[in-house]
Amino acid sequence: MSTRLFLGVGFLALLLTAASLPAHASAPLAQDAAAGAQVYADNCASCHQPGGLGLVGTFPPLAGNPSAADSTYVEEVVRNGLSGAIEVLDVTYDGTMASFSNLSDDEIASVVAYVATLADVDPTAVPTEQPEVVEPGDIGEGRDLFIGSDRLANGGGACVGCHTAGDVGNLGGWSLGPDITNSHDALGGEVGLAAWLSSPASATMRPIFNDRPMTDDEIADIVAFLGDAPTQSKPTDPGDGLIYAGVAGLIVLIGGMAIAWRGMRQTYVDVLRSKR
C-alpha cells in the first residue's frame, strides 16, 4: 500500500475525531449564581459547609465574609488553592485548600457569582465553636481500611494505593500521593479531616471519590487511624528494598536464560560445527 493511502486514512481518522469533538466538551453552564450553587455543593460544601458557614479553626466561612464579594480574589483562590493561617471575622483559620483548576471557566465563573451572594449573609449565623465529634472511630478498623485489607464499601481505592501514614509502608511506603501522617493536624483535627474526606478536594482524588464516596463510618475509622498516625514509628526504608528485589529478580531471569535455551542462541554455523 502506498504512503499516500496511509496518509489518507490517517487524515480520515483525524476528521472523524474532529467531528466527534463537541461531545467531549463540557456542557456550558449559565454564569449565574443558581448554577454556581450546584458547583458549590459538588466541590466546596464539604469543607466550607452548606451555606458557606465554614468549619471553626480550619475552613473559613464564606457567609458574611467580605472577601467573598471580591470576585477576582475568589477566582484566584479557586484556581490556585490557599493554605496557611488567615483571619476571618476575628477568628483564625488554618487549613489547606487544593487548586480547583480542573473546573471549567464557566463553572468557576458561576461559583464565584454564587460565593459573592454569600458575602451579604448575616455573619451571626456563622458558628464560632467546633461541633463535637459524635462517634469516634476505631483505629484498628481505620488501619485495615487504610491498607486495603478491608475494602471501602462504595468501591473507592484504598488510601494506601497512594499514601503513606504512620507505621504502614515497609519498602519505602506509598509515593504517588503525599505522606499524610500529619493530615489530622494539618486539616484541623477530627472534624476538619472528616469534612475533607467526605468529599476529597485534590484533583487526583476527586474523580475517584466523587462517584464512590466513603461512608461516614469509614471516615470516622480512617480519621481515628490518621489521628493516631503521628505517634506510630515510621518505616525507615526509603524505597531501596523494592529496587534490590527487582534487581535480584532481573539477575535470576538473566541467569536462567544463560542456562536454558542454550540451543536458541547458537548460530547455524555453530550447529553445523557441533554436528561434525
Binding site: 491498607i147 486495603g148 484504598a158 504502614v168 528485589a245 527487582g246 534487581v247 529478580g249
Partner: peptide, 27 residues
Amino acid sequence: FEIWNGAPLRLYLLEATGLALGLWAAF
C-alpha cells in the same frame, strides 16, 4: 488486584516481580 494487594507482603511480591520483568524487558 485490590484484594490481592490487601496484604502488604503480597503487594511487595507482585510489585517486585513486575519491576524485575520490567527491568528484564529494559535490558
